[in-house]
Structure formats: C-alpha cells, structure tokens
Design a protein around this nucleic acid. Structure first.
Lengths: 276, 276
DNA sequence: AAAAAACGTTTCACTATATGAAACACTGTT
DNA sequence: AACAGTGTTTCATATAGTGAAACGTTTTTT
C-alpha cells in the first residue's frame, strides 16, 4: 500500500507514469505488461537470471516475479538451465521467427551477405531505419578472430553509424529534418558528428558519393562503410554495411569493398523489386 | 458464469484441463497465459488477424481479446498494419533473437549452409532434436523457383524426415527406444515408415551408411538427404539436410551431394568442438 | 441512396484473480 | 552448528480482469 510500483508506459502516442493500472487505461492488462518487462531484462547482455535477481532488477515483488516466471516457464517462453537459472526459451525463438515485418528483406539478404563476408573477410550487416534508429535485420560475420559482432534484432543510433547515415542520406528530405528534430546527437567519440548542420552537409556528401563511411564515430577503432538498397521506385528500403577494426580497414580498400558490396545490393534489389 | 473457458495447460509434467485458474495452480498468471495463447494463433500460417477473428479462434471474449491486443500493441509485441489488422511486432523479433539456447549452433551454421545451397542449388536445413521433434535452427534456400521452404524455429516429426532420422540414428540407443515409446508413427504418405521394428532397422542402416534419405516419406514429390554433425565427443548435436523435388533429386546425385554437405558439416564441427 | 452487416471500441456492475509480507524448506558456505 | 543464500508456499486483502450490451464507424449489400 505504501510501496507503490510506478509504470512508465507509452500508449496512444503519449508516454506517462502511473501508480495504478486503472490510471493508465483500463484496457491495458497489467500482468501481461509485467511479463514482457521481465523478458526485457534479458536485453542487458546477461542470459541467465535467478528469481530474486530478476525481482531486484524489475522492482517487482519476489513472489510476483516467481509466479510470472512459473507461468512463462509453463509456456516455454523461459526455461531453466542446468544451474536452475531462468533463460529465454525456445518458444520465444519460434515466435520471433514468425514476425512478418521485413521478413522478405531478412530472407533475401541472407545469401548475398554471406558472399560479401567471404569476399571481404569483414563482418557485414543489413538493416533498416525503424523509429529513428537502425534495426539490424541480418548479419554475416567475419571469419577472422578480431571482428565486429552485433545482435540481430537490436538497434543502434543512426547518426553515428555508416548504415544509419546512408539510410538517412537517401531518405526524403522531410524525413531527414524530422529525424534531426527528434534525435539528440550525443558524442560517442571525438569523431561523432554532433552538429545538426554538419550532419546535414555530411548526408548531402554521402548522397553524392553513393556511400557512407563511419570513421570511428561510434567507437574508437571501428570503421564502417555502407551503401543503400533501393526498391523499384528508387526508394531506399535498407542498407548494407561492412565493419572492421581500423588496423585492417584502410582507405585504399574502399573502392574494392564498394564494388563487392554493390554486387550484393544488386542481388537483393533484384529480389525485392516489389517491396516498399 | 455459464460460459466457462477451459484451459489446457502443461505444468509440472502433467497436462490437464481446468475451468478456473485457481484450479490449475495459483502460481500461474492467467492473463499472461492468455496473451501467449493469442500469439500462438499466429502459427497458423496467417500473418494478420482482426480482433473478432482472434477472439473466435482463441475462444476468448471479444473485449478480452481487444484488451490483450491493446496491451501487446503498447509493448510492440504486436502492431497494426495498413489494413488495421494485427500482426506480430518487431519487439517479438528482438526477443526471439536474444534466445541463447542453440545460439552458437545457429551462428556457426549460417555460412556453411549458404555455401552448400549455392553448390547444390537445393534448399539446405540445419536442425536439432528437441522434445522428440526436429527443430529447424537455420536454413539456406535454393535459388531456384521450385524449392522447399521451411520456417526457422518451427518443428517437424523426426521419423519421416531425413534430418530427424539421422539425428535419431546417431542418438544413444536408450533415447531411440524412448522416442519409439513416446511417438506415434502416422503415415503421411505410402512411403512413411510406420512400423517401429522397421524404423529401428532403418535407423541401424542409416548409422552404417552415415546418412539418411527421405524418399517421399513426409510428402509426395519431396526427397531429402541428411548427415549428422558431431561435437568433439562424437555425440550428435545437429544435422544438415538437403531437400528438393523428386524431379531434380536423382539417386546418381547422392554421392556428390554427400561430399558437399560433409564439407559444411566439418566446418561447423570445427567451430563447435566444445558444444555438448 | 438507404439499409444492413461487420468492424473495433467503450461502458459498467461483478467477482475472480493478482498481490506481498511472512513463513518455509532446502542448499551450500562460514 | 550457525548462517546466509536460494526458490517456494501461505493467506488475508484489495486490485484488476471480465463479458454482455451499447456505441460509433466503416464497408458491404440491397
């Protein structure tokens, strides 16, 4: 009674904080929200959690957490590993693969990405703009030991990645301006472009050149190059990027990398002509 | 009151039917179960659903269904498409990719599968045994128009697929016997092996030859070949299969297919030596 | 152009269900 | 032998989920 939980929920366009569920909207089901907030905890690069641990992280009562986990376990959404810790279950993998949004992009990019990764020997990513960020739909990892590795399904800021910048650059002008209006440009390294005007000019440059470079703008030591993938209406729908350590990724490689990536992009474009 | 919902739930080893939640186990959260049963409906090869449609399919009240959907929408677990129908959302894709079970197998199989698919020009699958069925962890589709296409994350019967049979054949004997004790062998075609003794003998044969064939045992016109993938302890952990239409898949191809698949299997095995 | 059907959504009275502090059983550690 | 750490169960209480019916739109049929 004196120890209320507060819920921060985006609903019908607004973000708000509430003490009880009834205040939020009596159409929302609190238990379901709690269950998914629990699963959200697994995004913290930690694969296994105990009951008390999850309770602490979520702020839920230990008992509530236990009961939610029991429920999710009965559904195979989570499962216990050998140490009796809770991990995400195979049912979630199954459901995730049913998601139809961008499914054709995911499927048709698979083979071309592998070809590029084999040719360039660096990690290749494939992604789209989604809610002002880059959503990674697919990847093909470098066969080398030192490599970039991103989680498929995860998001990254657009303004400081080659993939994000190329997707922005080829978007309609109003979308670019909308982006700049809504996203705060924070410096990740000294190379990050944090000035709106400078970014606009940079995007103009990318549009002219046809590709984007990320020169350690997100992370020191990490360099990327990216090109757009168009549909038949010449609208950008996705992008391909190659990422590698600065020790291997030299300016003289750019042209040969570009010709390899472009072949891959063309292959994808031939499959998704009807996509929009 | 007079229109009870019945819940069929597997919990603590038992499958049971209950009229109210309290009967099931007061530790299970009914709303969470309902939400996931709603998502389960999307496994019926239909990507978009309306409220009433889902209500009818699940047996839930229209209002309840609407509220569950509103909740799931606020979490991006489902989203509305252009026709205002509900489809599975990107958050589910994100969560599905976080599942750690078999993650290394999924990652390391990607490149080899693409190589095989490119060489053989047929669809390649990669899967494991999970709860007496084949779970497809990865695939690389044929570039040809007429091809097999399976959903990653989906399941198939083991006894009538090349992949399932090869995984069974190289499993410990007690697991094979346990399988035969628990699984009913139904005829999918006239070629399906539905006799336990015959299947046992067939598995013995597969073990000797080192590969399994599925000669239209699951579906008329569909032929598959599969080989096992071992860990460093020589235990089978996964399998690779190649599937194609009987019009293309001829007996004289078997040897050349095998040599190509075996290269891929070796590549995967080199990466997963520590897997068990 | 009017009527009917189908849709998602909201209302409101009712009761089933989620809740959490405390107690419990168990395991590994000090 | 005492302790600290788990996950789990209990029980009284109040919150939150429920569904029939009504509502306002949109789409289809007449």
């Amino acid at each position: 009674m004196n120890n209320k939980n507060y819920f921060t929920i985006r609903y019908k366009g607004r973000v708000n904080k509430y003490a009880t569920m009834k205040e939020v909207d009596k159409n929302l089901n609190l238990s379901v929200i709690k269950a998914f907030k629990l699963l959200d905890v697994y995004m913290n690069n930690k694969q296994e959690w105990g009951v008390r641990e999850l309770a602490k992280k979520t702020g839920y009562n230990k008992t509530t957490t236990y009961r939610l986990l029991s429920t999710l376990e009965s559904l195979d959404i989570v499962q216990k590993n050998d140490d009796d810790k809770y991990i995400l279950g195979l049912k979630l993998f199954e459901l995730g693969n049913l998601v139809s949004v961008h499914k054709s992009l995911r499927n048709y990019s698979r083979a071309p990405l592998e070809t590029i990764a084999k040719d360039i020997k660096e990690t290749v990513h494939f992604g789209v703009l989604s809610n002002h960020r880059v959503l990674y739909l697919n990847k093909a990892e470098s066969e080398l030991g030192l490599k970039v590795s991103t989680q498929i399904g995860s998001y990254q800021q657009a303004y400081c990645t080659a993939l994000g910048k190329v997707l922005l650059a080829f978007s309609p002008t109003d979308q670019i301006l909308d982006y700049l209006k809504n996203v705060k440009l924070d410096a990740h390294t000294t190379n990050t472009i944090i000035d709106s005007k400078a970014l606009l000019g940079h995007l103009e440059h990318i549009r002219k050149e046809g590709y984007a470079l990320d020169m350690e703008e997100l992370e020191i030591g990490l360099i990327c190059i990216a090109i757009p993938v168009f549909n038949k209406n010449k609208e950008v729908v996705a992008g391909i990027s190659v990422s590698g350590p600065s020790s291997r990724f030299k300016p003289e490689n750019v042209q040969s990398y570009l010709s390899i990536i472009k072949k891959g992009a063309l292959e994808i474009e031939n499959h998704i002509r009807d996509y929009n």
